[in-house]
Write a protein that binds this DNA or RNA. Structure first.
Lengths: 239, 239
DNA sequence: GCCGTATGTTACGGTTATGTGACGAGTTGC
DNA sequence: GCAACTCGTCACATAACCGTAACATACGGC
């Protein structure tokens, strides 16, 4: 899966990013293209999956906005086929999902999508997401958005954890705890260190609180990911 | 990633540790420098990543406190560039993260940071963390974070032993025993010495307890690593 | 080869750290 | 204002670790 948009683009900071919009609703296509062009992106469009594949061949977009619900060839299948094309392997694919279809989100990830945005689409939200993608692309060291480890995908943009095609939504503290431990797999953190880094050093909670949160995380993602080192602390267990 | 602060410093117990403070907020720099100086540290500062690199060249700090959010060159990128400099490879880099920017920890670890501290910074918390770093640095037995010896990798940060790709998790005392012996291979320790160093001077357990722990360690990592010197004690056996 | 001593080995119970379920205060969304 | 959720705390249950003792074996001197 592509971590960023095409390297070719990354090397040239002044490049105009090319975006392919794929949706069967002409109104949506128009709305998106209008807004994207206004922001200075170069756009192309397609009304279904088949045409999207054809257009992508010539256009070689940096980013593809792909609707899931389409006649002929749906977004998931299209995504998979797009990924198979060598020229598009570094393209950033953003899938447009109808709200609350968690199922398609998971399928999309497996098909090689890089991100989602929920419908109905707010142009401002979309543009800021794209700006983030572009920014990240231009500064490869800007930050990591997702960790793939041990069959777990921890995604900070979605604030969710994906496990074997299942989406798990964790409360904030639990998510942060898991994410922090996963950031330094194998490294053992004492309860105090975890409190300092996740709770902050200005809050004042008992060390045992960490235990409770660890337990809740384990309950949701499975016991084996977080290991207890008795008398020391916890660590993320990467085999 | 540096395991401890520079060895040069480790050899002289009375050395004044040099700390470089990097933050774009002059108030924070002042606050930190004031507190550090009061504690007897030698300090220098820089307002952004570029200047940090320049200052670090001359100053060659033992510890660097590095803000993530900075103009010009952010903390992560700075960290990576600092690590590339041979003179700074053993410098201990502590990253200051605002807790709202989740996941900066992931990037920071990958960039070679050794530790974090969350903002807002309480001087007391920072100083105690630094004291811990210095203490570890001066304690020769805890100095190295990982030992590779005899087909065994003993990793203090992970609190685990790896043997031919196999991970062995030892209970605390057993791990400490093995790590202690491995830190000074070939050197023979009497049971009393082991008790003093691992159990502490104030606890009092029978010397034979050591035997039992030795046996358990042998059971898990193999007999040949720890050798008995009859009438004297034990030693780690490095070929 | 015998005996005394040192170490290997096993088993067991106490102690402590951690796991676990429940509760209440505070918050958010409807 | 109610319902659902999050978070921190407590109290109790559980499991892991640790130290000890008792017995078994190995070693060395004679």
């Amino acid at each position: 899966m592509a971590a960023s948009v095409a390297p070719r683009a990354a090397s040239a900071k002044t490049i105009t990013y090319k975006i392919l919009v794929v949706d069967d609703d002409p109104d949506i296509v128009e709305l998106l293209e209008f807004n994207l062009k206004k922001e200075g992106y170069l756009t192309a469009s397609a009304g279904d999956g088949r045409r999207a594949l054809a257009v992508a061949q010539d256009f070689v977009p940096d980013i593809i906005l792909l609707d899931v619900m389409m006649p002929q060839l749906d977004g998931i299948a299209t995504c998979r086929l797009l990924r198979e094309q060598p020229r598009l392997k570094d393209t950033y694919i953003m899938v447009l999902t109808a709200r609350s279809e968690e199922f398609s989100e998971v399928a999309a990830f497996e098909a090689g999508a890089d991100d989602f945005i929920a419908k109905p689409i707010k142009p401002r939200a979309l543009l800021s997401r794209l700006a983030a993608v572009v920014r990240r692309d231009q500064d490869p060291h800007a930050g990591v958005e997702a960790i793939d480890i041990n069959g777990l995908r921890i995604d900070r943009t979605a604030f969710a954890v994906y496990q074997e095609g299942r989406k798990i939504t964790l409360p904030k503290k639990e998510f942060e705890l898991l994410a922090f431990l996963a950031a330094a797999p194998h490294k053992v953190f004492s309860r105090d260190e975890l409190l300092q880094n996740i709770w902050g050093n200005d809050v004042f909670v008992l060390a045992r609180t960490v235990d409770v949160h660890v337990r809740k995380v384990r309950e949701k993602v499975g016991d084996h990911h977080i290991q207890t080192i008795k008398g020391v602390g916890y660590k993320f267990n990467a085999d």
